[in-house]
Each structure stands twice: as C-alpha cells, then as structure tokens.
C-alpha cells in the first residue's frame, strides 16, 4: 500500500557519493551495459515527455505555426488573462470540480461495499463467478460503454424511453439535457469501474489477521458486528489513503469518455477542463490558449497530487500498514 504513488526517493536508499571523478568513470565503465539498457527508455522520455514540456512556452507566446514554437513572439500572461475572463473556462473549472465531487461521494463508496460483500461469501465457486462478472465491465472500452449508454437512452427506441412510455410518461432525450449529464456520467462510471476498484479493498481485507475474527466468534459476535468492529476499522487506513489519492486527482476527469457523450446542448454541465482544452486546441487550433489552460491544469494538479502524497504517507505511517 505504501507505494500508492511512487516517490522518487524510493528508487535508491543510499545517495551516490562520488568523491573522485575517476571513481565515477570507473563505475560507469563497469556498468555500461546497465546504461545501455536504460538508454532507449530514457530517450523515449526525453522525446515524448520532456520535449513537450519545452514546447509549453507557447502558452506565453503568440503562437504561429509558420514561425514555429521558438520563433513566435512572447506575450507574457496574456493568454492566462483571456482564460480567466472567459466564462467557458471558468465553467469548465467548476464543472470539473462538481463532477469530481459527486463521483467522490457517490461512486467511491461502491467498491468498498462490494468488497465487504464479496468477503462475506464462503463458497469459492460463487465468489469467483461474482468477481469475474463484476470485473468484466472494466475491460470494455469507453467507446462501447458510450455506445451502450446511447442505445439505452435513445429517445425513440431506447429501453428507458420505452419504459417511460409504457408508464404513460413523456419521453426524454436524456443526452441532450444538461440536467441529466452528470447522473449518466457517474452511474455508467460506477457500472464500469466499481467492481474492478473493489480489488484493492479486498486485498486489504485479506491482510487482516484471522485471529481477530476467531476471538470475536468465541465471544459470540454476529457477522454484522464483525464487519463493523473488525473489517471496516482494519481497512480504514486503505480507505483513507485511496480517498486522499482521489482528492489529489480531482482535476482528472474521464475526458475520453465525456468527449463521446457530450454535445453542445450539454456543455453547460458536461464541459470539463480537459474537454475544453481539447476543443479549443485540437479542434479549434488555438494551440497557445489551450496550452495555457493546460499549464494551469497541470500545475494545480501537481500541487494537489504532491499534497495528497504527503498526507497519504502520513496515514500509512501511523495506520495499520
């Protein structure tokens, strides 16, 4: 559990103390094969991860594809000023936070509940079957999930509207209605990921000392009491750590999925920071402005993740693990 998000410090325990250059060269010559093994991956990181960071400068420039990244002229924070005066960007920030917050409250508890329930099953066969079925949706692509959602909610032929008509209610074109978007996004998200996310809690439950249950049984505890007095308290540190990590990633919303389901009529509730960047930059070719929005997003996300990391490390140190 402690490796939730890797800290670079865990890569090595003892700092390299090269007092003499000769010694350094000697060691590197001895281990040249290790460096040769590392080289391809490191070059990959350089080209595909670090070079774009250099390209981030366009957020402070008036980017022209003709002049290129370096040739474009500097304009300081003008793009950031534009963004913070843009209703659409502010709306995207607030939508991101609202969607994350709702999924934190509504979706995060479901895997915990599933893990507790699966743990109470004693028949091995049934347990394995239930797990297999519940994990399955995780492996289905977001495009297919979006396709299924569209099929279900189709205004004329979808199952939901057929049922509404049968009940004498009016049919609703759910995917064009902003008030329905978050509900659709979060509930289909639960369908897709809740089962698979329960694995980590099940693993934590497996780590509980069986002696605790045995002695509770001797004392005549019911299963319900054992869940609340033993299982839940024992996995509380895991729950806390995962909650903190989720908070750290609150700016990351499943934009690949949102892009499939949203449309102009639902932007009001559905447009999040990353979908806004996508539309602005990749669809609208406003690269500089979109990169500025990207920097803002990345910096805030970095601060949140580092804070979350620090807190979760404190929890794991004082917790059971």
């Amino acid at each position: 559990m402690s490796g939730a998000i890797e800290s670079p410090a865990t890569f090595v325990k003892q700092p390299v103390r090269a007092s003499k250059w000769g010694e350094v060269i000697e060691t590197m010559r001895r281990d040249w094969m290790l460096y040769a093994m590392l080289a391809p991956a490191l070059i990959w990181f350089l080209i595909f991860m670090y070079k774009p960071m250099y390209g981030l400068q366009i957020a402070f420039k008036h980017f022209s594809a003709f002049k290129g990244i370096e040739g474009s002229e500097w304009i300081g924070f003008a793009h950031f000023m534009t963004l913070f005066h843009s209703d659409q960007f502010l709306r995207a920030i607030s939508n991101t936070l609202v969607i994350s917050f709702y999924s934190l409250i509504l979706a995060a508890p479901v895997p915990i509940l599933l893990a507790l329930m699966i743990n109470e099953v004693h028949s091995k066969g049934f347990r394995k079957t239930v797990q297999t079925v519940l994990y399955l949706p995780h492996f289905i692509s977001v495009v297919i999930v979006a396709g299924i959602v569209i099929a279900f909610l189709s205004p004329t032929t979808g199952l939901v509207n057929t049922a509404l008509r049968a009940l004498g209610l009016e049919q609703v074109y759910f995917l064009t209605r902003p008030e329905w978007f978050r509900g659709i996004y979060i509930s289909s998200g639960i369908w897709k990921e809740a089962g698979f996310d329960s694995i980590i809690y099940l693993a934590a439950i497996m780590g509980i000392n069986p002696a605790l249950y045995e002695s509770a049984q001797v004392d005549g505890a019911t299963r319900w009491q054992m869940i609340w007095r033993i299982t839940v308290p024992c996995i509380l540190p895991t729950i806390a750590v995962l909650l903190v990590i989720r908070l750290g990633h609150i700016l990351e919303v499943g934009y690949e999925y949102i892009v499939l389901l949203y449309q102009p009529s639902t932007y009001e509730t559905a447009d999040v920071i990353s979908t806004y960047i996508y539309r602005l930059g990749l669809q609208g070719a406003r690269y500089d402005l979109a990169a500025a929005a990207g920097i803002f997003n990345a910096v805030v996300a970095l601060i949140l993740v580092l804070t979350a990391n620090k807190i979760s490390r404190r929890i794991t140190r004082t917790g059971v693990f």
């Binding site: 990181f45 996508y278 970095l302």
Partner: peptide, 28 residues
C-alpha cells in the same frame, strides 16, 4: 549499484506527476 539511480528514477517518475498536456504533446 547503478550510479545516478536516484536521479534517473526521478526523471522517470516525475512524468507521472507532471506532463506537458495534450497540446504540446500533439505539436511535438
């Protein structure tokens, strides 16, 4: 025994916390 392991590890792990984002990645 890999010398510079700490720095190389950081070089790799840093990209999990911070990346340039969609637009510079695309332009690259």
């Amino acid at each position: 025994r890999l010398m510079g392991r700490r720095w190389i590890g950081f070089f790799v792990a840093f990209t999990m916390w911070f990346n340039a984002g969609m637009i510079p990645f695309y332009l690259n």
